[in-house]
Design a binder for these strands. Structure first.
Lengths: 210, 210
DNA sequence: ATTTTAGTGTGATATATGTCACCCAATTAA
DNA sequence: TTAATTGGGTGACATATATCACACTAAAAT
């Protein structure tokens, strides 16, 4: 199990009793890179707090399409799983582990309980929702107003910010995340190469813009 | 000023002290249909709770483009204005009154205060964020996966749900909300007319599908 | 070493949407 | 009553993206 010290570092703004509650009630789980953690339509039974690794959140189509929205990092929670009532809420998002991850799983019956007991939990939930709401706004801004070339740049920049300038993704990976086709991404990347924004390799490329 | 009875009807889940706090601190404001209530980049100085009428929330482009996201109705709050810290947060959305409206304006210094004092305010804020997060997810779903014809249908259905089957919008109005051009909307509406989904008039059309 | 597979490049073509030009009719302003 | 404005229809064309076909090559599997 996790130590209180680790928890304190991950979630520095909590009150003491909340750490204890987590240690008592949360289960520390692991998942391999690539695992699907939450599917669209799936009933939410537990909240998910990231301890180690990175999770990607997607909007998912009926016919298999996906659109990447944002990353979840250690110290962050998956907003959609922070349900504060017992009604069987269904997930409207797809969540996948991008790296091997560790996360805390908390049965949803504690959500409402802790909202009453811990002020810092309340703030944490609000902060989580607010920041994710803002991520969605950025996503809408991209899709509603930008062409694929700019969306691709935005996408790569998000990757670079997360994992560094060596982008270990295939064209197909990116195409899947942006709900387009591999050819489109290949052509746009080729343009970026011509403009000296990237250096291409097989299975990866380096972001060298500016 | 508003009566406590009206407040109780609009916001039935609040505790008694919260009604009093609102009556003491909130200002009841009015705005004409068409007024811009919040612009992108604008500093948020006060929270906005809808009392009467309907507000539309938009994502806004740098170069004047707009994309309609969702409606706000009486008893609902504008999530982006519910800031819980004193940092000068800037609006990431555009809000416009669609009808003449009345709304409560609450200086943001009370946001944090009331979070501490009123449990029901806490729940209200969380509920607000959650429901708006879900609206944004729906919007992303539309833009990321659907062509303009389906997005137009989705848009009209939102209108019909709000205001009824007589759609008092010009083609240009709709084009603005969906960040496309008037001609595109005209052609798609013409198809809907052929399919007997609508009956067209000047300045309006009727939704008669099924 | 040879075969297979996965990743990538690229032309040709289809489709959805954006843009321009111009027309007409209904409404409003003068 | 006439002129101006607004809403709408539509052809022609431009552009962005999707789709298909196929070639090439590095890496992996045999």
């Amino acid at each position: 199990m996790l130590s209180k010290e680790t928890l304190t570092k991950l979630f520095p703004d909590w009150e003491d009793g909340l750490y204890d509650a987590i240690l008592n009630e949360a289960e520390l789980k692991e998942a391999k890179a690539g695992t699907t953690l939450l599917k669209m339509g799936q009933n939410i039974k537990s909240a998910m707090l990231v301890v180690e690794g990175t999770i990607k959140l997607y909007q998912e189509d009926e016919i298999g399409g996906e659109y990447f929205m944002y990353h979840l990092n250690p110290g962050e929670a998956c907003a959609v799983t922070l349900v504060c009532n017992y009604h069987h809420e269904q997930s409207q998002v797809l969540a996948k582990a991008v790296t091997d991850i560790q996360y805390l799983s908390i049965p949803i019956e504690f959500m409402e309980k802790w909202l009453n007991e811990f002020k810092s939990w309340h703030y944490f939930v609000i902060k989580t929702y607010r920041s994710r709401y803002e991520e969605l706004l950025k996503t809408i801004h991209e899709i509603a107003f930008k062409n694929m070339d700019e969306r691709l740049e935005f996408y790569i920049l998000k990757y670079v910010k997360q994992f560094g300038a060596i982008v270990n993704l295939t064209h197909q990976d990116i195409a899947n995340d942006l709900n387009t086709s591999r050819e489109v991404i290949s052509r746009l990347l080729k343009k970026m190469e011509h403009n000296d924004w990237i250096v291409m390799n097989r299975n990866s490329f380096d972001w060298i813009k500016k």
